[in-house]
Design a protein around this nucleic acid. Structure first.
Lengths: 161, 161
DNA sequence: TATTGTTATACTCTATAACTATA
DNA sequence: TATAGTTATAGAGTATAACAATA
């Protein structure tokens, strides 16, 4: 949303034609939900660009990290942790396995489930994506400044509510 | 992402099996980008629920508000303000016009462009959606508390960067 | 009966490119 | 040539329901 950076101030602009001038965002610009969405879109796009530079989908980052942090995790647990249905995970993991980044092993203990882990190639790809994320985070730090800790705390309160 | 609210603290959990226990989010939980995404998903879902209760798509709110604040706006200007391609706007406006919420007028000045405005029904729908947004915002206020002003300021810095 | 993962299917949102009608 | 809006089409990303294998 809003790449154009038109008038965001909310100064009642007399509701003009807005054919080519500044667009009036009105109350929109004072709502938390709306600003959250704009900020998220901006950061996601920035991270997407960095990811695509190394030939990866931005969405793979969370998946690979969760597998790396929880080796042996099942697909169902992984999809729950990601807040997605297990069926949405199937094509993602299919892609990661096909490209040799993730390994699936059947266990004797429960022969229905897979145990997921990263291959060495998967670890290298995750390392590259992590470098992107760190670069991205450095950029954000420069923008956020000393408000960082409090900012994250508020974000966690919102997502945990 | 993450409805389950597993261990978010980042305490190195020895990388256990995570088959049915807590999932380790690792560094993920300390990154601004990731927390921004979780928070945005949570608020969007909450607002979606409120919108659907009155039979509206959550995405229509921003569109209707922008038209209300900028009567006579063209589709191209509207799509730019929304950060979307004009072709993405066509089916949205088609729906709003079909339902009698938005009016399109051709002008003599430029017979290629439409001038968009809300009908009385559109204004009523917007009023209902605005009430949802206000309710949602009240909930967020309760969560965010006195950090609100600073929080929005940081969000605006991020989306404006 | 319940659960793991897959399949079939569909929906939403988005974009690109080519088109038309104007300008 | 350039712009406003539409169309055709495609690609992510997601979900639901039904299914086979296993528990």
């Amino acid at each position: 949303m809003m790449r154009k950076k038109a008038s965001r101030g909310g100064r009642k602009a007399k509701a003009g034609p807005a054919i080519n001038g500044a667009v009036e965002f009105g109350r929109l610009s004072r709502w938390v939900g709306f600003n959250l969405r704009l900020a998220q879109e901006a950061t996601f796009q920035a991270f997407s660009r960095l990811s695509r530079e190394i030939g990866e989908h931005p969405g793979r980052f969370a998946t690979l990290t969760l597998i790396a942090e929880n080796p042996g995790i099942s697909q169902t647990t992984l999809s729950n942790a990601s807040g997605r249905d297990k069926s949405s995970m199937t094509p993602v993991l299919e892609d990661l396995v096909r490209r040799g980044l993730v390994q699936r092993k059947k266990t004797d203990k429960d022969r229905r489930a897979y145990r997921l882990s990263l291959t060495p190639a998967g670890q290298r790809t995750l390392a590259k994506l992590t470098a992107c994320a760190q670069l991205h985070e450095d950029n954000l730090d420069r923008i956020i400044g000393r408000d960082r800790v409090r900012f994250i705390r508020v974000l966690k309160r919102i997502s945990g509510a």
